[in-house]
Amino acid sequence: MIKVINPGLQTTVQDHGRIGHYEVGMPPSGAMDKYSYLASNLLVGNKDHAAVLEITYMGPVLEFQQDVNVAITGGEMPPKINGQSVPMWETLAIKAGDVLSFDFIKQGARVYLAVAGGIDVPLIMESRSTYTLCGIGGFEGRALQAGDELKIGGENESEIAVGTRISDELIPTFSKTNEIRVVLGLCSYRLTEESKERFFSIDWTVTPEANRVGYRFKGERLNFVEREQPFGAGSNPSNVVDLGYPIGSIQVPDGVEPIALLNDAVTGGGYATICTIISTDLDKMAQIKTNEKVRFVAVDIHEALEIRKEYQGKINQMKQQVLGHKGGVKNG
């Protein structure tokens, strides 16, 4: 059992996501930075899909009531056990009665805390992920609150030695200026050539409206090509006939403030989606904070697939390090 002394700003239970229900309007939720999520589960010997805690901006204070291995990955938020600094990206041993807390966030925005066995909450539509907008999944469908008690599950499949760590070259670093790669479309034809050019040439600032649902950006106004309003489309030039929104798609309601739709977003609607963030860069997006800068870079689908292959390669390397003890750094 883990007792929540202080929940932090927004700490939720997340797994790989509620996949396969998009057509009925159910977004996947799930860990936003999948690479860090996978690493945390790997380090405690969990199955790939075990539920972890996703911590945003400010860490919780947790009291463990049993001995268990844990691992903390993601953005840099220095963790402490009973006030003593402990490393991230490493298998740690927690004893019953230990208190885990965190320093201020130094880099990135989200941190993943995996416990061996996973966080045990009921499966809702095959997933333990919290979808707070609908109040389903996770711990009672909401972010953690002080006094909550989390049960530990049985989703572990291998013994990982305390002190096992991910090697430095496989640990991502995060900065305050970011390049996010996108594939143009589905409705980029609605933007004027000039606005399309401007979209890719200015720095966009992340506004305070940036959460699991989506990130809103401030920059400059974009313009749409004049047209006759088609049957079924809204009257605003940024409207099209309703379509499914890809995860990571970017729309620009009324031409002001682009919004990137993320894990908890609406699944479809009537705004022109001008491009879509490639899947690997959704992880990067998840680690960007309010008031940081983003530059969008266009890639084509072939480049995106190539980048995804590299990303898979890194994950395999990480698995080999931790499970195969090949080249893994051990200091335990």
């Binding site: 700003l9 901006y57 400010m58 201020f104 966030i105 305070p208 904070k289 309010t290 008031n291 940081e292």
Partner: peptide
């Protein structure tokens, strides 16, 4: 005094 989180002051 520092702010631990980003946002509107």
């Amino acid at each position: 005094v520092l702010t631990p989180i980003p946002g509107v002051f």
